[in-house]
Amino acid sequence: MKIAILSRNGNLYSTKRLVEAGTKLGHEMHVIDHLKCDLVIEKKQPSIVYKNNRLEGFDAIIPRIGASVTFYGTAVVRQFEMMKLFTAVESQALVRSRDKLRSLQILSRAGLGLPKTVFTNDTKNVEAVISEVGGAPLIIKLLEGTQGLGVVLAENDKAAESVLEAFHGLQARVIVQEFIKEAKGADIRAFIVDGQVVGAMKRQAKEGEFRSNLHRGGTAELIELTDEEEIAALKAAKAMGLGVAGVDMLQSARGPLILEVNSSPGLEGIERATGRDIARDIIKYIARNV
C-alpha cells in the first residue's frame, strides 16, 4: 500500500515510528505537510497538489493534525476522503474531538462518567457557576487549550472568581469543572486502535503540579485497566467515531471519569510505558480496512 502521513514534521517521534512500522510491513510511506497542500475542487474530480505535484496512487492517510491548524488540516483530510482514500481518523471525528464542549456533550449523551462541568456565556454570574461544580478547588479550562496549556487550578472561590473574570475580560471561552481530589494528580490514558485497547498508562503529575501531561514534566507507567475503565474507554472512542484514539480518564470514587478523547495521541509516552509497538497496530488497522 501507499500511505501518506499528514504531519508538519517528519522528525517527530510519532511520525518516525509510523514510517518505520509501515516500511517494515512492506508499505510505501510518505510524510506530507498538510499546510503545503493545495486543494483543487471541481465537479467529480477532487484532487490535491503538493509541492507542484498532484498526489496520486495513495491508498490511505494517517492524519497527525496539530490543534492550532485543525481547520485547514481537517479540510485536507476531507479532500482525501472525497478522493475515496481510507483515513485512520475521519474528518468529522477530528472536528468533534477538537471541540471540548461538543465532546463532553457527546460523551454525556453516551452515558459516560464525566467530571461535573459548567459552561456559561453570562460573565456576571461567576458565583453561580462556581457553586454549581461544588465550589473550590475547581478546574478552569480554555476550550482551545492543549497539552495542559490554558488549564488552571483555582484553590479557593476568590481565586476562581478572579480567573474567570480575567478570562471573560479577554473574551476567552472557558469551562469550569469539579476537582477530583482522590485522583491525586494522576490520570489514565488508554490507547484505542480499531475498537481494542492496545495499551494503557498511568500519568502522574510532578510534585507541586496538578497537570499530569508528559509535556508538563509528568511521568508514565504501565497500568492494567479494570473492566469498568476498559469499557468506558472503548465506549468513549466509539461515541466520538474514532478508530484511533487516546482516551484520558480520572480514577474517582464513583468510577472512571472521562476527561478527553484525543484524535492525534502521541506514541512516545505510551510505547515507552507499555513496550508495545503501537505504530505497527495502527498500520495493521489500516491494512485491514483498505
Rank of each mutant, 00 (worst) to 15 (best):
I65Q: 07
V129R: 00
M201P: 01
V31I: 15
R78P: 02
V129P: 00
R288Y: 00
S47K: 09
P265Q: 12
R216G: 10
V163K: 14
Y72H: 11
S252W: 08
S103C: 13
A93Y: 11
L242G: 09
A60S: 13
I188T: 05
V89A: 13
T87W: 12
D59L: 02
G134Y: 09
K158Y: 08
L214P: 00
D99G: 05
Q147H: 14
K51R: 15
V174W: 01
E230G: 11
D99L: 05
Y285G: 03
H34C: 14
E155D: 02
S14D: 06
D59S: 10
N52T: 08
A128N: 00
E260W: 02
E207H: 14
G218K: 05
A190M: 09
K24V: 07
G195M: 11
E207A: 15
K43H: 10
I286N: 02
V290Q: 13
L164W: 01
V174Q: 02
P256I: 04
I283V: 13
Q147R: 14
G246W: 08
P265D: 13
K206L: 15
G22W: 12
G246N: 07
G10R: 08
D227G: 13
I180H: 13
E228V: 07
G22Q: 10
L142F: 01
N52M: 05
D99F: 06
F80W: 12
P265T: 13
M29Y: 14
A233H: 01
L250S: 06
E260L: 01
F191L: 13
A110W: 08
K284D: 05
L259D: 07
G73W: 05
P115C: 06
F119A: 07
L267Y: 07
K184Y: 12
F80T: 04
K36E: 14
D59Y: 04
D157V: 02
